[in-house]
């Protein structure tokens, strides 16, 4: 569906949601996106050129239901909020069908107009919708201005790059710790270097960064530890990952470059 693709990037100003009549009972909705039920409602009211203070509720309700029906058919997930609005509309419509209390029949017709609350919400919403348009404009201008590139200073380069020697120190510390531990020989499950690399990569992708000593500590045997160490070296060499040490002698992290 190339057309849908085209409208995926929604331009706030030039592209309004639009319902295009394409056939007899085949309406097609070209929706950038209705931001919500109030948005859709406002759109329908404008489409009908109705007065917001005197909404032809039966007509608008029908249109509204028609549209969300259509949205369903188009497999656009019709969120619960759209359905809540539908229920609200139907409620208002039914209230308006009720005969008015003759005693309250004064010239103050809209004294307790069931539409009033909805109108208030629509007006309130519309203000923020317009404000959103203003923000959009501002950010567009803002994105078109550039400041100079950042200077290389110590401050913005606070991450001390860890060297292989730092790595080695961490490794040695952990080896030392391992030696002190009571060894329980379990049936050895060999893990190959490539498996180890894959495991480490997976971890980095998943978490964004991996604490190296934590990773080493998980290793159950000397052999695994060595494999893990080589895997770490290998992964850094491939340059998809950076070694980062936030302070001298601090923890070394593997971070996605």
């Amino acid at each position: 569906m190339t057309e849908e693709q085209e409208h995926f990037s929604f331009d706030f100003h030039t592209e309004r949601p639009e319902i295009v009549a394409a056939g007899r009972d085949e309406l097609r909705v070209r929706i950038g996106d209705f931001a919500g039920p109030l948005d859709l409602l406002l759109y329908l009211i404008k489409q009908e050129q109705a007065n917001i203070f005197d909404i032809p509720i039966a007509k608008i309700t029908a249109k509204y239901l028609e549209t969300i029906q259509l949205m369903k058919r188009l497999d656009i997930a019709v969120a619960a909020d759209f359905l809540v609005m539908a229920a609200t509309l139907i409620e208002i419509k039914s209230k308006m069908l009720l005969p008015r209390d003759p005693k309250a029949e004064d010239e103050e017709i809209d004294f307790d107009d069931p539409r009033r609350e909805l109108v208030d919400r629509l007006l309130e919403y519309e203000k923020f919708k317009t404000a959103a348009g203003m923000l959009h404009e501002r950010t567009t201008i803002e994105q078109a201005t550039f400041t100079r590139g950042t200077l290389e200073t110590d401050e913005n380069n606070s991450e001390v790059d860890a060297t292989v020697f730092d790595l080695l120190t961490v490794f040695q510390k952990i080896v030392a710790r391992h030696i002190e531990e009571v060894k329980m020989e379990i049936e050895r499950e060999e893990i190959s270097l490539s498996d180890m690399i894959r495991a480490l990569e997976g971890r980095i992708v998943e978490f964004g960064e991996v604490n190296l000593s934590g990773f080493f500590e998980e290793m159950r045997s000397h052999r695994e530890l060595v494999t893990a160490f080589i895997a770490a070296l290998e992964i850094v060499r491939s340059e998809a990952v950076r070694l980062v040490q936030n302070k001298t002698f601090g923890e070394i992290l593997l971070r996605r470059a």
Partner: peptide
């Protein structure tokens, strides 16, 4: 930002 996000931000 999407229409929805802009509105929320507003």
């Amino acid at each position: 930002l999407s229409l929805a996000s802009l509105e929320t931000l507003a």
